[in-house]
Design a protein around this nucleic acid. Sequence first.
DNA 1: GCCGTTTTCGGCCCGACTGTTTTCAGTCG
Length: 576
Amino acid sequence: MAALTNAEIAAALEEIADILDFQGANPFRVRAYRNAARTVGEMTESVADLVEKDQGNLLGLPGIGKDLAEKIATLARSGSLPLLEELRSQVPEGVLDLLKVPGLGPKRAATLYRELGVTDLEELRQACLEHRVRQLKGFGEKTEAAILEGLDLATQATQRMYWAVADQIAQSILQHMEACKGIRSMQFAGSYRRGKETVGDLDLLVVADDATRVMDHFGRFSGVEKVLARGDTKMSVRLQIGLQVDLRNVPEESFGAALQYFTGSKEHNIVLRGRAKERGLKVNEYGVFAGEKRIAGRTEEEVYAALGLPWIPPELREAREEFAWADSGILPTLVELSDIRGDLHVHSTWTDGTASIEEMARAAKARGLSYIAITDHSKRVSMVGGLDADRLRQQWQEIDQINRRLKGFRILKGVEVDILEEGGLDLPDEVLAEADWVVASIHYGQNQSREKITRRVLEALENPYVSCFAHPTGRLIGKRKPYQIDLDAVIRKAAELGKMLELNAHPQRLDLDDVACAAAKKHGVLVVIATDAHSIDGLEALRFGVLQARRGGLSKADVANTRSWPELKQLLNRRS
DNA sequence: GCCGTTTTCGGCCCGACTGTTTTCAGTCG
């Protein structure tokens, strides 16, 4: 069997964790498998390649010891693992789906299987309808009803939403809540605050004198479909669009601790708590405690300081390298939207854009940018009227004319040239040589083998006129898997040749992702944050790209288009 | 299953809420 990809290895490890969890195994053993799955899933280098060179390479990785290194090596080499086969044979197919039902964890799912012989979601529904579930010890009428309701949600496949969509909802909730009297502080926490590319739910923290009034007001938000829970300090609702929103009222002196706690990530908090323990301290959502005495909690800065740490930006809180950076005083100052000077991937009505070159330029200028590159498609993208050499030169004449009119702004003559299926670029070198900025990208042959598609891209990078490789993995979040491309090889080649890689800022792409951005930075490859805007509104996406870059730990200097065009141009010349 | 100048064994983050309990287990974040 062919070697497995990192994603496939990670999935296998997750499956082991799921089955062990269901079987009631030691929860820390389960966690070990989940941690390993995460480590493998976040690696840019191919684990299979690594193993081929030397299995010992795996041992240094976080959360991977002797046993897991061996199992991962076996998986990578043979595509299967005896332990996984054995576990699968012990559990009927479909039974793990029970864990997807909200309110059902490993314990209850196992009871349903053991006592009622339930092996899939449909049998579970039947058991509920026949009131057999409520007769089980530890279950009751309400649990049975909750499971029935949860079943509908589970079959709807509870989807995470794009950060950009969550942002709209969060902002309208804030607007609604601002009308409520007596709220002294209010902020969203959770993965939304960390700027994760998708958001599963929203967590809103408030400091208010009258929790009842705040919760009543919260319940009147127009999008609320159902109140799921309501206690003294916490209320959960489900919105009509399926998103769950939690509201917590916290004491003022605990606001920072609560913000830290509920911002997560869970993994970051586990490390933080471990460090507290080493110092004889305890951290919870109310503060940092030495014995009974609270020594911090009002602000996040206080909380981190009490643990001997600088404040860590939420985007970095994934238990990756942030603690090591903090310890050695090299936490990066993250790039900000205001650092961005230009947009280097913009379309116009010359191909599939909805606004003219001049309209896009003026809109970009109004956003405070000082340059854009018009990068319309090349001819291979025939569906959108991709440009051949003649049309492209015509377009550049128009750009020259507009540039003469525009003050304090520059439109670059660019192109998004297709990397052809059988290799080579869609326009001749002598045309590309006349461009200010050349973005190469893949639109066809996305399903090619790893070897073939990687070779195509490495070849394209070798072209002296290519400046940047756009949307490097082609993934569409939740919709389309990345190409089988060897991203590690692409990053190394880009480093070698001084080429840049795009972080496509479209909320469905965000490609490079955070982990790949970090890998690019490690190799000294400059990242271009660009919108790929096809409309004036599309220029808005820049801020989503910046957020992703921040999650990758990028500073201003790591992002190419924080420079003025003359500076950037010089960099291109020096590198080629 | 991982990990270690407090440990190579015994830890592994912690609290709110719910429903079923009669003092707490399970789930969630």
